[in-house]
Amino acid sequence: MAQQPLIHYRVRWRPAGYQPGAGHGRVPGAGDQLRSVVPLRDHPDPRRLDLRTSLRDPFENIWVRDFYLNSALKVIVLVDTSASMGYVGRVHRFKVAQEITAQLALSAYRTGDAFGVFAAGEVINKKRMLPPKANRSAWLWVKQHFSKIKPEGQHAEGLFAAVPYLPQNPCLVFIISDFRWPEGRLKLLLKKLSHHDVVPVMLQDPTEVDALPRRGIASLTDAETGEKQFVWIRKSLRQKVEESRIKHIKSVNEACRILGLRPFVVKGEFDTALMTEYFLGGGNT
């Protein structure tokens, strides 16, 4: 894993839970955001004495400040391991997925958040799942286990089976896939995850979009179904392919938009700075 800047993800809600972390939490505790001012007898911590409020009180009560706990977030990554994820174009698609997962794991640990991974192809891969915990070595775990995963299977329905494994309270969920799914499946999955904060990470390769060969003949093998097609690439066919790519991206965007989300597109190599930018620019909403 190349050394990259950490990903500074952000959520627009306050995570529940008593695990101290970096985000603004919802429960009282040690934090940096003022929650309220309470009488000393309710919160007997004289270190938090609020002089100004105490002096202004005509009844001469002693007031102390109460803060929100800076609580930890749970970051969960769902990885599609269907056969199309094994596509090697300019980049190895699954290697990119591994890179994103590992970077997120490292960033989550450095931010003090819990991190969990679920990988699923046709069925959920129970050997390669990591329940959300604060885990220092999660990125190493990702490196070790993902290199053993061989992308196979004709669809990614196993991701639906991963939904019940997720915590009940809201988490930040990344779905890493190329979203070459049947129409409506993405929308359904997003609906099932609707109480979480979901970031669809869409993997693309330049060779399948705008770096098609200009002309010539070739035989294409579908990575998932193994179907073969003889193609004579020329201008008209290339345009049709580009159109259908645009249509696919549009349909992914549409499915996300209905749920109030915005997909993060990774074209080729993954750059953590771009993901930070994505969160700074409004995040997934």
Partner: peptide, 25 residues
């Protein structure tokens, strides 16, 4: 056999059925 070099492609749904390609094949 197809007799031409084969390439893997993540999803053939991108490639519309092309009559001229089939004829050429």
């Amino acid at each position: 056999s197809y007799g031409v070099k084969q390439f893997s492609y993540p999803g053939l749904e991108d490639w519309p059925k092309d009559k001229i390609s089939d004829m050429l094949r």
